[in-house]
Design a protein around this nucleic acid. Structure first.
Lengths: 108, 108
DNA sequence: GGTTATATATAAGAAAGTTATATATACAGG
DNA sequence: CCTGTATATATAACTTTCTTATATATAACC
């Protein structure tokens, strides 16, 4: 099966929140690779969606970015603050509540 | 908990496909009530989203509509054709495949 | 007579993706 | 040395799909 690039909208934000809630810092490229690895190549994030999502979390003031130069390449690390971790937990819990309800309709 | 009106985008189409795949015909209002009932008031569809979704399936030629007058009120019945039932099965299967992958990231 | 339930539908706007494009370095193979 | 692949960030144009607001109309109940 071809790796799925198109997400059900709203889930990219959850993926980012989850990974950053359990890792003190990650950079964009790393997030895409981690997701690909965790899902056995099934989910491949696009940068055109990832960066706007990260920047939005930054605008919401629940994420902070820090640029570091490694091997002459700029690398931008993202971290959630305390509020961000709380947001992550809340939104992921809401997602599971929603899919539970949705499955009452979609289940065979 | 307040009933959830906002869906994760893309799931409304799945809900409609699923209900119409297992019922020979349903009308719009009936779909909203059935979903509310099946999910114990957790998911409430809005008409502003439902009707465009139904009309889109019609434009895709996998759904047919038939207006009937009952108690002096116009009622519009929607049915999937054979292709529509196949589409329903395929897209719902794809959804479950996707959420399975997604859960590899989101699970605690 | 007024509110609630039944019934369909469109328009304006927002949100969140896809696809295409731009830029730049490091490293391996031929 | 040159080329392709991997690493790395980012924006712009566009599309899809919702939310919210609005319009219209009848039936049933109190």
């Amino acid at each position: 099966m071809a790796p799925k690039k198109d997400l059900i909208k709203g889930t990219l934000r959850l993926i980012v929140l989850k990974l950053l809630a359990e890792n003190t810092r990650m950079y964009g490229y790393e997030i895409t690779q981690r997701v690909k690895e965790l899902t056995n190549d099934e989910i491949e994030l696009t940068f055109g969606a990832l960066y706007p999502t990260l920047h939005k979390l930054e605008a919401e003031k629940i994420l902070v970015a820090k640029t570091v130069v490694i091997d002459n390449r700029a690398r931008k690390y993202y971290s959630l603050n305390k509020e961000g971790v709380k947001t992550a937990k809340r939104e992921i819990a809401e997602y599971f509540t929603f899919t539970k309800s949705l499955n009452l309709v979609l289940k065979p």
